[in-house]
């Protein structure tokens, strides 16, 4: 399946902003996060197609996964 991964804030350093990836069916968010060299603790927000998702969320063909460190403002 094909997914899109988008990274934000410090996660972009030494990585990328946006990349298309080919993955096996049944890949979850955690697997992608770990493969990016990120740890679970560093993750602030996981969005799949603009909705909050958990580390165990199973991705589907055509999904967009957006990852943010713990940041905030207001």
């Amino acid at each position: 399946m094909h997914i899109k991964v988008k990274l934000f804030a410090t996660f972009r350093n030494g990585r990328f902003k946006e990349a298309g990836q080919e993955r096996q069916e049944g890949t979850n968010c955690r697997k992608i996060i770990l493969e990016l060299g990120l740890t679970e603790e560093e993750i602030g927000i996981i969005l799949v197609n603009g909705r909050h998702a958990s580390l165990d969320h199973l991705l589907q063909d055509g999904d967009t996964l957006s990852l943010f460190p713990l940041v905030g403002g207001g």
């Binding site: 988008k6 602030g44 603009g50 943010f68 713990l70 940041v71 403002g73 207001g74």
Partner: peptide
Amino acid sequence: HPVSGEGLPTYGTNVLVNILNEAG
């Protein structure tokens, strides 16, 4: 705290543009 200790000083409040955009 990661937000007050690191997020806010690095990117200010404007880091929210991309977050809110992604969240629709």
